[in-house]
């Protein structure tokens, strides 16, 4: 029976001539993979949220609780991205330009936030920044609490977004020739003029790309924030955690609406990143 089935299947195959589409196997595999991994889940999310109807969608999406969760998420993530835009650039600069013992180790450690499970990161940060922790105790006497507040959320987002800026900047800085600086000096440019007119302008697009990458990573962060924050609505509750809370309450529609808003925001961000990258390469186009 089995052999009969398979042979007839094979026979059928012989009669099906594969149409000559301009599709190569790698192209087909790529498309299939992307549909399966990316397009279907996104479509499912959007479809689910649309079953509610526009009015209901809008109502849930703009509830005060949702709005506050967005603002905690996006504003804190943006602050973290911007601070790391400066600090990450500095770190990348030092790692590329200076030779010092332990440089390789520090360079490798930059990727730690990538490798560390985010829950572990959250646990470590929550401990270190708690009122009794190594760093937290320095701030406690001034009445500044870090863990279990919005500042803690900010710290966690700083932690996980740093590698994005550093790793975006490093190759660009490595490519930068020392001669460019020397050329500026020979033309009479001061250190500040050399930095602001010669070194910084080509760095701005990659810095912006790094900030955008770090920002979108921070927006999506869940594991470390859920641990370091107290997750109290209107205080330090971030949107991804709100999604999870909704799921726990079996409010699937509510969860997907907030999820869809986050998705839209991410899409816009990715478009911005792409645009920045194009703009950054405008003088590199032959």
């Amino acid at each position: 029976m089995n052999s009969f089935l398979s042979s007839s299947f094979n026979n059928n195959l012989k009669h099906i001539s594969i149409p000559k589409l301009p599709i190569s196997i790698p192209w087909f595999v790529t498309l299939g993979y992307l549909v399966l991994m990316l397009l279907l889940p996104i479509a499912a999310l959007i479809t689910k949220s649309l079953t509610l109807g526009v009015d209901e969608f809008w109502r849930i999406a703009t509830q005060p609780l949702s709005l506050s969760a967005y603002s905690v998420t996006f504003i804190t993530a943006l602050a973290a991205g911007l601070i790391n835009g400066v600090m990450g650039t500095l770190v990348a600069w030092v790692l590329v330009r200076y030779e010092f013992p332990g440089r390789k180790i520090i360079d490798a450690a930059i990727d730690l936030p990538f490798a560390l499970p985010t829950s572990v990161a959250g646990l470590v940060l929550a401990t270190v920044y708690s009122e009794r922790g190594w760093i937290g105790q320095l701030f406690a006497p001034f009445g500044i609490r870090i863990s279990f507040t919005r500042v803690g959320v900010f710290i966690a987002m700083l932690f996980i977004s740093l590698p994005f800026i550093v790793r975006t900047l490093q190759p660009v800085l490595q490519e930068m020739e020392k001669e460019i600086e020397e050329a500026a000096w020979s033309l009479g440019a001061s250190s500040w003029q050399t930095f602001s007119r010669v070194l910084l302008p080509p760095l701005i697009p990659p810095i912006l790309t790094g900030i955008a990458l770090g920002f979108s990573r921070a927006v999506g962060e869940y594991g470390s924030v859920v641990i370091i924050a107290s997750n109290i609505p209107f205080r330090d509750l971030i949107a991804p955690v709100l999604v999870f809370q909704r799921l726990e309450q079996y409010d699937y529609a509510g969860a997907t609406v907030i999820g869809t808003v986050l998705l839209m925001a991410s899409l816009v961000l990715l478009l911005v990143i792409n645009f920045l990258q194009q703009w950054g390469r405008r003088y590199a186009i032959k």
Binding site: E177, I180, E182, A183, W185, S186, G188, S190, V198, Y283
Partner: peptide, 19 residues
């Protein structure tokens, strides 16, 4: 200092400001 010498310097790999 090189900045105050008022010299012109041309490098092997041009060292133009690409931006």
């Amino acid at each position: 200092d090189v900045r105050d010498r008022n010299i012109g310097f041309v490098f092997q790999h041009y060292a133009l400001f690409k931006h």
